[in-house]
Write a protein that binds this DNA or RNA. Sequence first.
DNA 1: CCTTGACCCTCCCATGGTGGGAAGCTCCAT
DNA 2: ATGGAGCTTCCCACCATGGGAGGGTCAAGG
Lengths: 160, 160
Amino acid sequence: MNIGQASAASGVSAKMLRYYEEIGLLPKAARTEAGYRVYSAKDVNTLRFIRRARDLGLSIERIKLLVGLWQDRERSSADVKRVATEHVAELDAKILELTAMRDTLQELADACHGDHRPDCPILHDFEGGGRSPEHRGTVTKDVRRGKGAAAGLPAGCHAG
Amino acid sequence: MNIGQASAASGVSAKMLRYYEEIGLLPKAARTEAGYRVYSAKDVNTLRFIRRARDLGLSIERIKLLVGLWQDRERSSADVKRVATEHVAELDAKILELTAMRDTLQELADACHGDHRPDCPILHDFEGGGRSPEHRGTVTKDVRRGKGAAAGLPAGCHAG
DNA sequence: CCTTGACCCTCCCATGGTGGGAAGCTCCAT
DNA sequence: ATGGAGCTTCCCACCATGGGAGGGTCAAGG
């Protein structure tokens, strides 16, 4: 099985296959004399595992952990569960953050008549005078962006 | 006002001030003879506007639009509202996506006893046999990652 | 006046996953 | 033998942000 076939069988692009190998998520694939990568049915299983994990938004780092546990017959399910639970917690945090943004913005949009006139509560809020505090404060606390979010959650986030 | 003071007054890092100028979100700042950037109180207002918009998760592209509308006395509030509403729609989509991931993973975690034994429904699902469909299908549809999400939503997403 | 330290400048690099594409080789079918 | 599909490596881009190197500037205190 060459890379194109493994890709088709697993739903992981050839590009990503090479990338996962490069970063050590996958072991280095065997090669033909000509240098073509060769994959087995077992490799395809691993790839499907990875694909499923990515679809659930897990980061590559966590998938590395899970693949390790998966292949360890001595693993304890508690370790697996912990990884999953950590990810759920991050998803929850991100959902809360996005929901707060959404709600604030929806409120502002609702307050905007949306006609030809220039007057607009959205811009008024952004101007940040803070003169209408009832429309502020929702996301104002410094939950702000930072490595945590970018490194932790992503996958589904950068995804598209 | 130099860049450090403008940064402190607006809550936007000096690094980002330079970046926003580079990508054309801000006009090129005036300079002292020594080459130091100089900012006015008006600039700080714009920066606060941008900061607020970023906190609500708007992409730089959309913020460019909003700043343009903000500074246009002839604008119609409908245009502003449309930009905001588009962003709300993207936030909603992302929230749905993350929630689906979260729910699936939480179900799997709930089903995992989490003790010393190796048997684990999470790994079982990831193995993807599809043998227990009641735990599948939630995120299985190909909503998958792609340019749209990365370009559209971000801010709060990459943020941290 | 000179030193010190805080500040500023530009330029490069990294993040996390993913896609795009160029330049060149291999394989298979015609 | 030729064409095209598929493989290889290598570099670039995304988005927004932070980190840091290497060097210039400014103001306060000695």
